[in-house]
Design a protein around this nucleic acid. Sequence first.
RNA 1: GCAGACGUAGCUCAGUUGGUUAGAGCGUCGGAUUGUGGCUCCGAAGGUCGGUGGUUCAAAUCCACUCGUCUGUACCA
Length: 506
Amino acid sequence: MAKKKSAKLKARTPRGFVDRGPAELQAMEQMLSIIKQTYELYGFEPVETPMFEYTDALGKFLPDQDRPNAGVFSLQDDDEQWMSLRYDLTAPLARHVAINFETLPKPYRSYRAGYVFRNEKPGPGRDRQFMQFDADTIGAPSVSADAEICMMASDTMERLGIARGDYVIRVNNRKVLDGVMEVIGLVGDEHADTRLTVLRAVDKLDRLGIDGVKLLLGEGRKDASGDFTKGAGLGESEAEKVLAFVEAGAETTDQTIENLRALIADSKTGMEGVEELATMAKLFDAACYTDGRVLIDPSVVRGLEYYTGPVYEAELTFEVKDEKGRPVRFGSVGGGGRYDGLVSRFMSQPVPSTGFSVGVSRLMAALTTLGKLGQEDVVGPVVVCVMDKDIDSLAHYQAMVQDLRTAGIRAEMYQGNPKQFGKQLQYADRRNSPCAIIQGSQEREAGEVQVKDLIEGKRLSAVIEDNKTWRESRPAQFAVKRNDLVAEVKKLLAAQDDDRKNQSEN
RNA sequence: GCAGACGUAGCUCAGUUGGUUAGAGCGUCGGAUUGUGGCUCCGAAGGUCGGUGGUUCAAAUCCACUCGUCUGUACCA
């Protein structure tokens, strides 16, 4: 007997994967629609690519025998080729462009939203499946394309309801970072590991502060749990140079650029990067985006793998408290940069490209906390209650539903067990229905129906205490002629809609 | 990946030194009420105490391993 129980399946989602309910989906739709409008306004057009790609097309090495799924979800097709779930939207786009290079207009501006998958440790606010919304310009060599995308990123934030000053688009250039490496003598393949360690240290500035970065540039750092992270092992003067560079961000963009010029004068690549930043800064200025929206910030690192020029990051700068009252920073909610080598992996010619990706899932969490999203309830359908179960009556109820639907009003006939009438109203209440339609034999004979305003009724329930009064007074309920049903429901819905608007304004 | 903390009902948690049939609140379902949501009252269902192995006359409790969750850290296209 007891054995039987253990056979019952435990209902669960794979770790790092979640289900999404109507409220969340409604909020996400709303967000995606705003981002899409912004991107289209800038002239971008949609394209969709599959969730699966051949693993080599994603820029990953073939999976090892031992750990075929490190980082990505991979599987072997029946012809033994490795394929993987996409882990971003950029690599698949590069593949798409390479296939359709002849027919696509260049520069090619495209956008797409979709779920991406990462096979790594999940955490709160960090699932293994999440949505990104990308925009890319392919075949545009000038940094004016990068500048445009930064400005579009800024516009997107504001259209989503994030106030100016609550976010910033921070911009840097990979060539500048390379220049710094050159200046401190970290050139050539033999120093590749050290360069990586230095960049990672710089990337941690906002979390560990300048002192933490200093430790990581030198011997290493011990964290709160006693775990030790090995540092880059730079000498005193090298570390100082890197730190000076990280702190080169100044009050004005012009000053920042001047600081960088002074620090990197010895590096040709570095100076190229600084000049690109200067060009972008001029463009931002001309379009008036330098009022705190877009900022030149030398500490931005971003993806170490494929960026070749400007890199940018959208960051939320405000703090909110979590349930336990601790301050939480949302930090980066999107980023991108120039990847001149990504398409040309498939081709024999260079294809300069730049793009930006919004982390929709993370941004949504932030907007919800801000109260900019997901505040309004999902409004349910009008529920036509079933009082009599005979065929003729059912036909009448069905006709009411049909009339409402024809008028564009979301409606349904109660399809559960109609035995207990109370259950039907309980159901309508749970669906957050605006109203229920009731017609028993009495009403039918009079050619009427009862319209019960469930929203108003809920309000009235606060002042009624005993059940008897509550039932008999039939709060917020009124009779209308059957022929006026659609018009009356319409009126009620409009009134409720106004109420909601007024409330959200207060 | 590394380190630490924690795993008892759908959820939040009690559970004494190892000792009879493992409890509560909330939620769910049913009823009071076969023509009215909320409130109230009554009742019921729901647990191999994360899993496996061990110590013991006896394990939710002690030990080992394992899986999972959380926190920090590393990685992050």
